[in-house]
């Protein structure tokens, strides 16, 4: 498997007629970990949702390509099968469908008919990944996210990431609501994925997570655009000084979407 590239150019996204993303550019290559940081309400989740094809978000301009495939032309499931993954900020709960059945369907969806993963192999892999994430065995048979605590849902998103092994993953606030031990476990999971074939975009508004997963590039998002990019040191500066210096530098009064510079 060769390394993949996710290329986002001049992306404009609206929700219910309101423009949220206003010309966003970003390129993520296999082997790289990017972090997108920014205060609340600056369009980070909108970016993630637009990449995955959330039904409420409308792309009005721009393009998203995974290698030479036009992502915006694809159905949601085709995007996943092409190698994209999104760990959602607020994962859905699906009653009556066990985690294990769901994961097996997801794995088999990317395999040819007649070439489904054997139950033995699946269980072995699931057990291994759950152990790595300190998840109790009972999670396999619990209904998908139903009644999970915030932290359990986040772990479950990472479990899916590890089971599905995408080429490019977007992790939207995978750290929020996690205590330090859970944060370490989740980071361990993501770090275990690190390889030349895996690219990752971590969305967060705390620097905390980046102590455990060192990013190659850090981007700051405000008003629906990336307003500053740098290396890991940028995250550290944000941690110690906050966002105000960037706002001053760029003459931004209100960083949330809908406010003009």
């Amino acid at each position: 498997m060769a390394a993949s590239t996710l290329k986002i150019e001049n992306l404009h996204v609206s929700i219910e007629g309101k423009e949220i993303l206003k010309g966003l550019n970003l390129e993520i290559n296999g082997g790289e970990i990017h972090a997108v940081m920014g205060p609340n309400g600056t369009g980070k989740s909108t970016l993630a949702s637009a990449i995955m094809g959330h039904p409420k978000y409308e792309i009005t301009e721009g393009s998203v390509f995974l290698d030479n495939e036009d992502v915006l032309e694809m159905e949601v499931d085709e995007r996943a099968k092409a190698g994209l993954f999104l760990a959602m900020q607020y994962p859905s709960e699906v009653s009556g469908v066990t985690n294990a059945d769901f994961l097996r369907s997801a794995i088999n969806a990317r395999r040819e008919e007649g070439d489904e993963i054997s139950l033995m192999k699946f269980i072995k892999k699931l057990d291994k990944k759950m152990a790595e994430l300190d998840m109790g065995e009972e999670f396999a048979q619990r209904y998908l996210n139903e009644g999970f605590s915030g932290g359990e849902k986040k772990r479950n998103e990472i479990l899916q990431l590890m089971m599905l092994e995408p080429k490019i993953a977007v992790l939207d606030e995978i750290d929020s609501g996690l205590d330090i031990d859970a944060l370490k476990v989740v980071s361990k999971g993501v770090n275990a994925m690190r390889s030349d074939d895996f690219g990752c975009l971590i969305i967060t508004h705390y620097q905390r997570l980046l102590n455990y997963i060192t990013p190659d590039k850090v981007h700051v998002m405000m008003q629906g655009r990336i307003v500053k990019s740098g290396g890991a040191e940028l995250a550290q500066r944000l941690e110690s000084e906050g966002y105000d210096w960037i706002k001053q530098e760029l003459g931004i009064k209100d960083e949330t979407v809908g406010q003009e510079a």
Binding site: H54, P55, D77, A80, M88, P91, S92, G96, V97, L164
Partner: peptide
């Protein structure tokens, strides 16, 4: 719930299969 369908589809599960899972899940209890 369209967001539920979106969630399942975002894992590569087809719309049809997602509906299938949701129906089985709904009747399972």
């Amino acid at each position: 719930d369209p967001i539920q369908l979106y969630y399942l589809q975002s894992r590569g599960i087809s719309r049809h299969e997602a509906e299938r899972l949701i129906i089985h899940g709904f009747l399972a209890p």
